[in-house]
Design a protein around this nucleic acid. Structure first.
Length: 321
DNA sequence: CGGCTTTGACCGGCGC
DNA sequence: GCGCCGGTCAAAGCCG
């Protein structure tokens, strides 16, 4: 399945950016005319604001639908693998996402707790998501075919400290440490998927003990993003005009679901029945994230100025600038 | 010159 | 004990 096919993530900026195109002939009473124009513009801006809010809400609903579908898929997968694990199948090498979940995440666990094979049963349980003793998450990032780098832009600052070719994948695996805070011990591994080489698989180990640099720059107070390796829930990397990537967090939905249950912000048992207040918070965060992003501002400014140049023959530029 | 990447060497765990 | 493998170290080189 192609996630990007389900969610239309394109943000149309084709708004009505020229408020004066339906102005009448030269006014005889300029002052009144100006007030009328201002009122008209105000109502227009309000309606566009509503449009944007609706778009954000729609985006959020698509996101929730994806999460629900993935949670269902994971439940079915774990149900089947619970029976499948009775017969040990090392290196089944099958479907990428599924094998990643079962084999490599248990491997990640083993490296942190230094008791890798002592409790192989425990490892299996961990892999199915019933017990998670360590914040480890995995994300898949679709990249351009021509992009050969192993860089996943997630809003954090990473220093590469190693690269290795592993046995089960001809593509090298890169090892990164968080370099933003010296005390931050978060690591991540990035490797191209063996099945689909346009997909980067990033595995995060540990928790950041700081905000993402981009968040700090903006003075944002969203400390809730300190979660497991902070897989940039809604704000950080979604605005990346230079690289049209679709990020699908394969672990976070489960984690977030539990968090929501704890905080009472939303229930996820068996479906997508979050409370409106949570939706509103998400929408507000997305909007805030967009408005705080200098890149987004620049893109909007460029779009606006472009439209102005097109439709106003240059005469209205002065009014807008 | 400092920070980052590259890359071969090294280390520890595990299976045989 | 030996070899394999994944993960890490650290020296060398690169770059702004």
């Amino acid at each position: 399945m192609e996630p990007s096919a389900w969610v239309d993530s394109s943000l149309s900026l084709a708004l009505n950016l020229n408020p004066h195109f339906h102005s009448h002939a030269a006014p005889s009473k300029p002052q009144i005319k100006k007030e009328e124009d201002l009122a008209e513009e105000l109502s227009r801006v309000s309606s566009e604001n509503r449009k944007l809010t609706q778009m954000l809400t729609a985006m959020y609903e698509n996101y929730s639908a994806l999460q629900t579908q993935f949670a269902d898929l994971m439940q079915r997968t774990s149900a089947t693998s619970a029976t499948a694990t009775k017969r040990k199948s090392p290196e089944s090498g099958g479907d990428g996402a599924q094998t990643d979940q079962s084999s490599s995440s248990s491997g990640d666990e083993s490296h942190v707790f230094k008791k890798p094979r002592d409790n192989s049963c425990g490892g299996r349980v961990v892999a199915t998501g019933i017990i998670r003793r360590k914040p480890s998450s995995k994300i898949l990032v679709r990249t351009d075919k021509s992009d050969t780098s192993l860089i996943v832009k997630d809003g954090f600052q990473w220093r590469k400290y190693g690269q290795k070719v592993t046995r089960d994948n001809p593509c090298p695996r890169a090892y990164f440490k968080c370099s933003f805070a010296p005390t931050c011990q978060v690591k991540k591994k990035v490797q191209r998927s063996a099945e689909d080489q346009t997909m980067l698989v990033a595995t995060y180990d540990g928790e950041h003990n700081h905000l993402p640099p981009s968040e700090l720059d903006h003075g944002s107070q969203r400390s809730s993003n300190l979660g497991p390796a902070t897989t940039n829930s809604v704000g950080t990397s979604t605005v990346s005009p230079s690289k049209p990537t679709v990020t699908l967090d394969l672990i976070q939905p489960v984690e977030e679901a539990r968090l929501n249950n704890r905080t009472g912000l939303g229930a996820v048992e068996g479906g997508n029945n979050r409370q409106p207040v949570f939706q509103q918070i998400i929408v507000e965060q997305m909007a805030s994230s967009l408005t705080n992003d200098p890149g987004f501002k620049a893109a909007v400014a460029a779009a606006i100025s472009g439209r102005m140049m097109e439709s106003s023959n240059g005469s209205m530029v002065g009014k807008w600038l």
